[in-house]
Design a binder for these strands. Structure first.
Length: 287
DNA sequence: GCGCAGGGGGTCG
DNA sequence: CGACCCCCTGCG
């Protein structure tokens, strides 16, 4: 049954900023400018009219609770942005550009697989692969005469052989996804357990998964319900922007990732993950 | 228009 | 440090 939840006077909330900043892959823009997406067993459409947000859709639980949690509505972003803006003038500009970003509370398992797929890949193809997987191994949902599919559980995805995964368009990532799925199914990465680990141990643990290196691990830490705002994913864009603004070496290849990590930590502090998102989004939108 | 390099949100051996 | 799958893009 369809539910609705309306919030008024929300700050730090902009649909484009949230869905195009690169944290998620399953949200699509509708003709009216709203966005629709699937998470868990929910199909949600979000529309924005000024500072009024309208959530509509089908939910397992109460749509208000589900959306407040998923969209991180109970966190004070204004406060965080004020603090980060004071740290640096470039970051201040980046924040004013991506003013409406919120970091979604995405499912740990789905985020893991999604970012394994992201390795050496481009966004349109990442999205396509994830949709293929959902269509073939997820559950079918219907909302306003349209069909949607949930992201499959480890058990559901474990039905796929390496060859099956290859057919989904995964390429050389097929074995990585296969192995990590098995690992989840065997209970080797229980969220409740690893959530308790300190940043360093957690990072090390995630890097044990097939297809997960430092960058992907950082994305899982930052973008999933693990919610580590002190994780600073370094990809080609972040390398570029960090070198251009701060490190300033002639040859970008001579900039090491640890060098960037150390710099980010002392410059941006414990909220550096969020800083990364503003800088990344700002830089990438300039193409 | 078509064909073909080039390269993409890294990881692994 | 090079290879890796697939596909989309840009250029000739």
């Amino acid at each position: 049954m369809e539910q609705e939840y309306i919030v008024e006077n929300v700050d730090s909330f902009n649909l484009k900023d949230i869905f195009e900043c690169g944290q998620c892959f399953r949200w699509n823009k509708e003709e009216d400018g709203s966005y629709s997406g699937v998470f868990k067993k929910n199909v949600i459409n979000v529309k924005q009219k000024g500072n009024k947000i309208i959530f509509k859709g089908i939910c397992e639980g109460n749509i208000e609770e589900v959306c407040r949690d998923y969209f991180d509505l109970d966190r004070n972003y204004q406060d965080i942005k004020n603090k980060l803006s004071k740290k640096d003038r470039f970051l201040k500009e980046a924040i004013s550009y991506g003013d409406g970003i919120r970091i979604l509370n995405q499912d740990f398992w789905e985020t893991t697989i999604s970012f394994i797929i992201s390795a050496n890949n481009n966004i349109p193809r990442i999205k396509k692969i994830i949709e293929n997987i959902a269509k073939n191994y997820g559950e079918r949902l219907e909302y306003i005469n349209k069909i949607y599919y949930t992201f499959p559980s480890p058990k559901q995805l474990s039905k796929a052989s390496v060859e099956d995964l290859r057919k989904m368009g995964l390429g050389f990532r097929d074995e990585r996804v296969y192995k990590t799925t098995k690992d989840f199914l065997d209970g080797n990465f229980k969220e409740a357990e690893i959530k308790e680990l300190d940043s360093q141990s957690l990072h090390k643990k995630l890097c044990e998964m097939a297809g997960v290196g430092p960058k992907v691990a950082n994305c899982i830490e930052l973008f999933s319900t693990l919610k580590r705002f002190d994780s600073f994913p370094v990809d080609v864009w972040v390398r570029k922007v960090m070198n251009e603004l701060y490190i300033k070496k002639e040859d970008i290849n001579k900039v090491s990732n640890t060098e960037i990590q150390i710099f980010a930590k002392q410059k941006f502090g414990s909220m550096r993950g969020l800083a990364q998102q503003y800088l990344f989004y700002w830089k990438r939108e300039q193409n």
